[in-house]
């Protein structure tokens, strides 16, 4: 009797659960959890003279990371990410507000126009900026032709240019959550506020901002964190003068060939990410609004 019941239980619940959740569990455990644990282990390893990873426990990698050259780049990376996030908010907020409050059918077209550029690969678009800003590029050609300058200006290889590229790559991650948050705003609340005599500035600070802060928080998280890792943007536009943490990691896994050191750098990046996510949750941020 008992055997029969458990067989039924198996067919009714265990089997379908296994079939549906099994594959995703396999992928998440084998290709997310295990690799990250392995990176954590590797960050305590060292390399031999042939650059092979040898498994002996050492804190040497973390000690090396505390050296001032690295600390400077962490600081630089955080500054670049911070400025990028601020600029994305300053441009993205009013922009999202205007297109989300557009009443006509143009709204969907305006929304699509934000997405369309992102169907061209980001690396190629960043290279488009390089073509535009380069010393023999289109902008300089134009400036010389208009006799505004006589010699080409070097726009590339500066921190500002890297920030421009980061803003360019990441601004949709600010615009889209803000658009969603602003679209949900109830128009009658704004009317009520102004009917009760609030000035537009006060309505904005007291009503609109608190109701859309969720969008600002999730947008900021989705801009700030990737910014720390986007090594190709600073590579192409900053030319080594505005490295982010991502550049340090990339170098250790490619030319530098010191995987344990690169692993330790990645652990630092993971810790920074976890701290930011914790802050986001403390501020009342919803994890589910990050992925869509």
């Amino acid at each position: 009797m008992a055997g029969k019941r458990s067989k039924h239980e198996f067919r009714a619940n265990t089997l379908p659960a296994l079939l549906t959740v099994g594959p995703v569990t396999l992928v998440m455990v084998l290709l997310i959890a295990v690799p990250l644990i392995y990176v954590a282990v590797m960050s305590f390893c060292s390399i031999d003279e042939f650059y092979n990873v040898t498994f002996d426990f050492t804190l040497e990698n973390y000690v090396r990371l505390a050296n001032t050259d690295y600390l400077k780049i962490y600081a630089q990376s955080l500054i670049i990410a911070f400025l990028t996030t601020i600029i994305c908010i300053l441009i993205g907020y009013p922009f999202s507000y205007i297109i989300a409050r557009t009443k006509s059918r143009k709204k969907r077209i305006l929304y699509m126009l934000v997405i369309i550029p992102f169907w061209t690969n980001s690396l190629i678009r960043i290279y488009g900026w390089r073509t535009f800003l380069g010393s023999s590029g289109l902008l300089n050609a134009l400036l010389i032709k208009l006799k505004i300058v006589s010699e080409p200006i070097e726009f590339l290889y500066k921190q500002g240019t890297t920030i421009l590229g980061m803003v360019y790559c990441l601004i949709p991650f600010m615009i889209l959550p803000l658009y969603t948050a602003i679209e949900k705003l109830d128009g009658s609340l704004l009317e009520a506020s102004s009917d009760l005599g609030a000035k537009p500035v006060n309505t904005f600070i007291e009503v609109i901002l608190p109701l859309t802060s969720g969008g600002i928080f999730s947008g900021s998280l989705m801009v700030f964190i990737p910014c720390l890792g986007y090594f190709f943007v600073s590579d192409i536009l900053g030319g080594g003068n505005s490295d982010v943490i991502g550049n340090l990691i990339e170098r250790q896994f490619q030319s530098g060939n010191n995987w344990p050191l690169g692993a330790a750098l990645s652990i630092i990046l993971i810790i920074v990410t976890l701290i930011l996510v914790k802050i986001y949750q403390k501020l009342g941020g919803d994890m589910d609004s990050l992925g869509v």
């Binding site: 890792g229 690169g262 990645s266 990050l290």
Partner: peptide, 11 residues
């Protein structure tokens, strides 16, 4: 979704 892509890449 949240971790920098480079960390996923190297892991």
């Amino acid at each position: 979704v949240v971790i920098p892509e480079i960390v996923l890449g190297i892991s």
